[in-house]
């Protein structure tokens, strides 16, 4: 199984994987083909307008050192996300080896009128 994923994901550094991106009236949806992953190994991070999806398997038992560097991802993909993404409402599901990340859009904020105080 390890060789299977080494072949599929690449032996040198994190490999890539295919993604599809969809949009509807309220959100952007990213679907990533990541078969055979454990849910706890899937990482979804949103920072600086970039969505990063990665697969980070746990370090082998016995190698866990308190000061050890974080485990390296075996697969990694970074995508730009719309500016109006509601970062705190991002959701994800993992079904049949497909990771779906839903990025809701923030509702448009009406312009606020600023009153000028009298001097």
């Amino acid at each position: 199984m390890d060789r299977l994923f080494a072949a599929a994901l690449g032996a040198n550094g994190p490999a890539t994987f295919p993604v599809d991106v969809y949009s509807d009236a309220s959100a952007t949806h990213v679907r990533a083909a990541l078969p055979g992953c454990r849910r706890e190994d899937l990482r979804i991070e949103l920072a600086d307008g970039q969505l990063t999806l990665s697969v980070v398997p746990p370090a082998p038992a016995g190698d866990a050192q308190p000061d050890a560097a974080p485990a390296a991802p075996v697969a990694l993909r970074t995508l730009p996300v719309p500016e109006d993404t509601a970062d705190d409402q991002v959701g994800a599901t993992y079904v049949d080896g497909i990771l779906t990340v839903t990025l809701p859009r923030r509702p448009a904020t009406p312009p606020r009128r600023i009153q000028i105080n009298a001097a």
Partner: peptide, 15 residues
């Protein structure tokens, strides 16, 4: 079997 729900439009496809 998956098909996009009504209202979804594809922006980018790799599969």
């Amino acid at each position: 079997a998956w098909t996009p729900p009504a209202g979804w439009s594809a922006l980018h496809r790799e599969t």
